[in-house]
Amino acid sequence: MTQRKRGRALGLPFPGTAGLWNAITDVPGVELGEVTLISGEGPLRPGHGPVRTGVTAILPRGKAKAHVPCAAGYYSLNGNGEMTGVVWIEESGELQTPITITNTHSCGVTRDATIRWLVGRGVGTGQDWGLPVAAETYDGDLNDINGFHVTAEHTIAALDSARSGPIPMGSVGGGTGMLTYDFKAGNGSASRVVDIAGGRYTLGVFVQSNFGRREDFTVLGVPAGRHLLHGKLRGKEQGSVIAIVATDAPLMAHQLKRLARRVPLGLARTGTVGNNSSGDIFLAFSTANEQAFSLRSGLLHMEALGNGDIDQLFTATVEATEEAVIDSMLMADTMVGRDGNTAIALPADELLTLMTRFGRM
């Protein structure tokens, strides 16, 4: 097995200035953890395997400040999917819990386990109940999805293991069994650093990437999928994508919703059109204004960028989304799952040859 490399390491000229780790964890305070479940091979035996799944946990302010909400907004491009807790986010403008992402039939497990984790740590959510954010994409092409292998204990382990710094990408955590443009994919992330109104801010995007028709696959404007047609497993548009946008720029809930609405522009750069079968759901949050969000009543004082100053954050969202999707593919190895189903890795050497031929290198 060869060592997989991210797009920038391969020389792909993605625009924008990335942070230190080029990941959502470049945003100060954000922590990410995951549990990966891989076992068994051969014919599908529901309840036994093969297992190719997992769970990813994102803590906006880290474990130490999990009780402090963030301003947040969400957007659904196509709703054939699930992200719990967004009704309250739309109402309150706040994200009050960690985020978990897993496979479609384990979404409820990770949601409930997040409450257990919060209660077990004596953290709470600032009120007498919790409405955690849990999201999903479908991994049944490779995984025994009806075997319900993700447990509350796995979720709690992912939350407990959350950390800052560089994060693993590709076939890990909730992204273990996912495909994108009919190549093996999974988790991807990227970040951008921007200077606005006298301040320097970081924006990071995380994707659990599981969508796309091979023929539509595009890299920096190059129609790569039309030239890499071998080894398709799905052979059709199927799947979903969850994107989480984090920033330390001071933004209000309605501005964060506007960031979430820019995620589809980054996805479109990779070729997708958001088909009927795809659940394309996005959440954006800001870690700014911590002191104000630590209070649950009284007169709160917050800072916010003016709407005229957030174009660079729109650009950062689009650029980081595009790069995160491509890296979710480049960092994933070929995987054999249930019934011998094989999701091939994106061949980096063939891609680079195409990029050179089209003048992008």
Rank of each mutant, 00 (worst) to 15 (best):
A18M: 07
T180D: 12
V325M: 01
G47N: 00
G359L: 04
G108H: 04
L313R: 00
L118T: 06
H105L: 13
T84F: 03
H254C: 15
V245S: 01
P43C: 10
D26S: 11
F148Y: 15
F14T: 04
A348W: 04
I344W: 14
G170E: 10
T356F: 12
D128C: 13
T334C: 08
D182F: 00
G298C: 05
E290K: 05
P15W: 11
S76W: 14
V219H: 02
D311M: 13
T114Y: 02
I38M: 15
F211H: 12
M355H: 04
I101K: 05
G177A: 10
L295C: 14
G62M: 09
L256I: 04
L351D: 03
L346G: 08
I101N: 02
T315M: 13
R357V: 10
I115T: 11
I310H: 09
T218M: 08
H230W: 15
R261Y: 09
G274N: 03
T36Q: 05
D112R: 07
L351M: 01
R6W: 11
T114I: 00
R269L: 13
A243K: 02
G140L: 10
R226P: 03
F217L: 13
D333T: 11
V109G: 03
S328G: 05
N143R: 01
S240N: 09
L12T: 10
